[in-house]
């Protein structure tokens, strides 16, 4: 069963898959740009961590996912939600704190959930999602549903103790978890070199016997290939796997971060030479998978989805005052 799945995943991506990846990445990019704009208009408040630049990671991971798989991540979570198939309207309306949001406006940017899409948050405490994801993996094994939990963490979270408590238990009990370390080089304003003794994050599970590999997280194809391998490993009962995604966020840590801790040249170089969307676009054109008119059509469709999400997020009412008191406990 597991090996059959592995074989099925090993095949070359089809033209349709390539185009879907392009569209999915573009949707995240445009959605996040719009979120940034709405933040600028004062429609979104508090913390707002954008995924711009990192799109290939989650799109490549989800391309290799099975329907039984679950996903959990930190607070830079809009990309994961869209890639899991959550409705952009519900996500954007949560950002604006409206009744039509996934959490009825009570969670905000960092706290959204969809049990239907097996997306388990959206967690605001750095590193806390890692034992939670390990528990989701535990539940996959307990219920024998064949799923793997995709547990995302950043290069900042890798220095939290609970990450290693999780690695230990996951390896000890061979839990189906793939730890996806999104290494965007900066834990808020602190570069990985200034925060981590040992910057090869793929090796962070070595003491527990967890295989790990570093992946070009700016290439959706490379992510897909590594994700297929890692997920097959975890699904087959061989235990957890670590993927260190070398990625980059173009924007600051959150909306109010001017990102003065890195050079303009560095950002420009990443945007101009390694952009995951532009790179894939060039491949699509070069291989004749799509023409300029086809790309324009995708642009138009994505723009419309994002526009509708933004409209919905502004038209949806604020939660009713009585909502202050609901959802604290489930009443029996």
């Amino acid at each position: 069963m597991a090996s059959a799945k592995r074989r099925a995943k090993a095949v070359e991506p089809t033209k349709a898959q390539f185009i879907k990846w392009y569209r999915d990445m573009l949707l995240i990019r445009r959605f996040e740009e719009k979120a940034g704009q709405l933040y600028g208009m004062g429609l979104i408040g508090g913390f707002c961590h954008l995924y711009i630049g990192q799109e290939a990671v989650v799109v490549g991971m989800m391309a290799a996912a099975e329907p039984a798989d679950s996903v959990v991540t930190s607070y830079r979570d809009h990309g994961q939600m869209l890639a899991c198939g959550m409705d952009p309207k519900g996500v954007m309306a949560e950002l604006t704190g409206r009744a039509g949001g996934y959490s009825k406006g009570k969670g905000g940017s960092m706290h959204m959930f969809s049990r239907e899409k097996k997306f388990y948050g959206g967690h605001g405490i750095v590193g806390a999602q890692v034992p939670i994801g390990t528990g989701l993996g535990f539940a996959h094994r307990y219920s024998e549903d064949g799923g793997v939990c995709h547990t995302y963490l950043g290069d900042g979270a890798v220095n939290q103790g609970q990450v290693y408590e999780s690695f230990n238990m996951a390896a000890l009990w061979k839990l189906p978890v793939v730890y996806v370390i999104e290494n965007n080089k900066y834990a808020m304003g602190t570069s990985i070199e200034r925060a981590s003794a040992g910057t090869e994050l793929a090796k962070r599970g070595a003491a527990y016997g967890i295989p790990g590999e570093a992946v070009d997280g700016m290439s959706v194809s490379a992510v897909f290939e590594a994700a297929s391998r890692a997920l097959a490993h975890a699904r087959s009962g061989e235990g957890p796997y670590i993927l260190e995604m070398k990625t980059y966020r173009y924007r600051g840590h959150s909306m109010s971060d001017p990102a003065k801790y890195r050079t303009k040249e560095e950002v420009t170089r990443m945007r101009e030479q390694h952009d995951p969307i532009d790179t894939l676009k060039a491949v699509l054109l070069e291989q004749g998978h799509i023409d300029e008119a086809g790309l324009k059509e995708i642009d138009r469709e994505v723009k419309q989805i994002v526009g509708e999400a933004a409209d919905f997020a502004q038209a949806s009412p604020e939660p009713a005052p009585s909502e202050l008191w609901t959802d604290v406990l489930i009443e029996a």
Partner: peptide
């Protein structure tokens, strides 16, 4: 193992999944 933060969080994840 002796790993309170880890197994408490693991329990929460399992509960999210319905256990």
């Amino acid at each position: 193992p002796i790993t309170e933060m880890g197994f408490a969080g693991l329990g929460v994840g399992a509960a999210f999944a319905g256990l």
